[in-house]
Amino acid sequence: SQKPDTKSLVRQMHEAYLKHFHMNKAKARVFLTGKTSTPPFVIHDMDTLQHAERKLHTQLLGNVASGDASSLQEREVEARLFLFCQYASVETVTELTEFAKAVPGFAALDLNDQVTLLKYGVYEALFALLASCMNKDGLLVARGGGFITREFLKSLRKPFSDMMEPKFQFAMRFNALELDDSDLALFVAAIICCGDRPGLSDVSHIERIQESIIHALRLQLLSNHPDNALLFPKLLQKLADLRQLVTEHAELVQEINKTEDASLHPLLQEIYRDMY
């Protein structure tokens, strides 16, 4: 039986998650399983990508100035896809920030500690959430308007071809755990409220928040997945896998930043700078 405060934490986190993330697993599965009247446009080569760029411009890039948009077409496909990735990342980081503020106790933390938790947590959370938009064949993009095939992403030139494959491999293992949005809400909160990020000042305060989330997560999994007693320890292992995934991703982005003519969004620069 769950204590009332734990139950309310589970409910609060689920509500905040549904409120702040425009995409969630339930919605993504509707698109990915074809149970929608407007199926996503499939991007599987250069032609379909160009078509999608015209059709889904706003969903792919938001309100990028029209001047930038026209010069965008002159850039190579890899650079354009890298830009779409960045746009989606910035959007998710913004959503994650709002979600973090809804975690009880987070907003009362020292502002520098809040920054540190986001700096180290957002990419781990982002890749956990990204798995909801993936199946073995590809990735849902542009708010469900598009679907980029895994093969197309693998066919890009190096180093861009190395960008998404590790995320697919993680996603396939993670999706096998069959979490739903109410589980994921607590998992994402647990990623963000992590007491061992470098440079935190009030570790004990963060550990208290973390403890209540982990406790709620354990009880939530027991009640939502009663036939899978090992789910909780398996999920804790995923936290370590995500850390590794982000370390490798950060290295790849630094490499792209150094060797390619691809500018990095200032928010993402802040996150990557002196990360690991």
Partner: peptide, 20 residues
């Protein structure tokens, strides 16, 4: 603090737009 200007801003103001 200067190193994480945008994160600070996002934490302090809700729904501030961050354009590419």
């Amino acid at each position: 603090k200067e190193k994480h200007k945008i994160l600070h801003r996002l934490l302090q103001n809700s729904s501030s737009p961050v354009d590419l």
